[in-house]
Design a protein around this nucleic acid. Sequence first.
DNA 1: ATAATTACTTGCAAATTGCAAATAAAAAAA
DNA 2: TTTTTTTATTTGCAATTTGCAAGTAATTAT
Lengths: 148, 148
Amino acid sequence: MENLREIFQVMTRRFGLLNKNCCQVGGEELSLVQSHILYEILQKDRPSMQQVADTLAIDITTFSRQIQTLVKLELVKKTPLPEDKRVSQLTLTTQGKYVATKIDADMNRYLTEVFSHMSEFEQEMVIRSVKLLNEAMSKSTVCCKPLI
Amino acid sequence: MENLREIFQVMTRRFGLLNKNCCQVGGEELSLVQSHILYEILQKDRPSMQQVADTLAIDITTFSRQIQTLVKLELVKKTPLPEDKRVSQLTLTTQGKYVATKIDADMNRYLTEVFSHMSEFEQEMVIRSVKLLNEAMSKSTVCCKPLI
DNA sequence: ATAATTACTTGCAAATTGCAAATAAAAAAA
DNA sequence: TTTTTTTATTTGCAATTTGCAAGTAATTAT
């Protein structure tokens, strides 16, 4: 078969570059990890710290500190859950929602631009392929365990 | 159109997880960046520092230090170019070649496992798609400029 | 009432990163 | 041929990020 590593290596790097651009909003510049955290909180409904950390496969101590930063930036709010005061519910502030939405829109814009270099047919094939790839990775035994 | 960001976000993360596993050889554990550096030196013929740093879009100062680490680990050798003593030619040591090849094989094995969860037809489609995606990104104006 | 778990937070210490500034060699300009 | 400019690479910080070990506080199990 093909040299899989070769093409995926290139893809990974290019995506890394794409992602570098993608997290500055206003004056602030967020890291990729932080943007992923915002994204996850935006999607889920009032998730706990542990929940999001697990989903993103980030060490909980690292995550704790990242959240502290995002709270200081007034993008995220932590509310103790009444039924169990150990857990913190995470929500986005208005600012946070704005930022998360902005990053989402930017990323979609970037991706759309990338896609514009392909034919309609190719675009659909690529989308189908990425979905397949995601499924395959979720079934894989060698990696990618967490995540949805 | 589809929510592109969604599916690519998931893919990016899963690949991040896949890559986490993929860089330990013997007792040593290399970082993803370091494995990319080894890969690049393996592919190219005696590249210079600047060359590899540009290809990988790594800041030259960061790169300089990474190479120092790899030299200490006896995976990379730096030889001053006779015609221009400013530039260092990079080559892999025997150890380095072994490690780079090992990582390459591991990654291919992981990817093959991932691919095993798809049909023959799907596998080919995915490969074609990733190549298309790489081309599209190389044409893109919003990112991914360096790289080959 | 006591012990064991769970959810999260801190205290290090090691890596990684990039900007500014330095060095040293080569090329261009005077 | 000097002098200046450019190029390739290295250091000096200083900020960020990371994970392990150990701690706190709230819950659940015994």
